[in-house]
Amino acid sequence: MLFLILFTSLLLGGAYALMAMGLTLQYGVARIMNLSIGETLVGAAFAAFWLQTQAQVGPLWGLLVITPAAFVLNWLIYRHLLTPLVRRAKNRGMLEVDSILATFGLLFILQGVMLALFGGNYYSYSYFSEPVELFGHTFALNRIVAFAVAAAVALALYLGLNRTRTGTAVRAVSVDPVAAGLVAIDVARTSALAFAIGGALTACGGALLSMFLTFNASMGVVFTTKALIIVIMGGVGDPRGAVIAALLLALAETTVATLVDPGLTLAATYGLFVLILLFRPQGIMGRRTA
């Protein structure tokens, strides 16, 4: 039982981690608290569904379309919708309130478009759904494939952030945008890049989740809540924290769903959140600021 719970949460945590890393880049680097991230995720799930059922392109190949498309879309959103807010904000608090309200706008518009296209029904499709025997337990192959892809993407991101010039610039802006500007880093461009990568990661997570979860047009908010809680738990701006927190959250959810009741997963999430707020508000990997 213990093994089953651990392994199931690990498989689920992979996709959560991608989404949370996406949000932590958008919030920690580009300073945008993106409350429409769940809609990005669900949008990508619908795109994967459409590609699989209408265009006969499987979600793994679909990722090659969905991820770049999300990158471009998020780049445009940052450049045209959010940059004016960044420019006019006198301080971080103002930008936070403005970005929260603007992304609420995006949330409802994206949700409205998806409702118009797909209605309120639940969707799912079958892909790699054959069972696999692992250590005496049965798992669906699609969950394992999704986890493997998520792990590969997360590793690529980690290397990209830590081994490349651009990655260093991204991390520098995350620590201090003003100081980063002083050492000739183009803060506006780096922020846009981080926001776009964040969107792409989230979309990637959404396409992977769609392989084994049923979804509908108004589910985004649930994922946004999870992503937000993971990011706060992990420590804003730290992708490693996001991974650890995503796995913890998946573990809490799976444990409660298996042992208590599947209807109480959100309660488990909130329980974890409250513990973090009370005892370590700066997050697991976060630095305590003065």
Binding site: L85, L101, L106, I109, G112, L115
Partner: peptide
């Protein structure tokens, strides 16, 4: 079916 679009537009309008 279009109340969501209204809410979204209203948020953007305000901001």
């Amino acid at each position: 079916n279009h109340t969501h679009l209204l809410l979204g537009t209203a948020f953007l309008l305000i901001v």
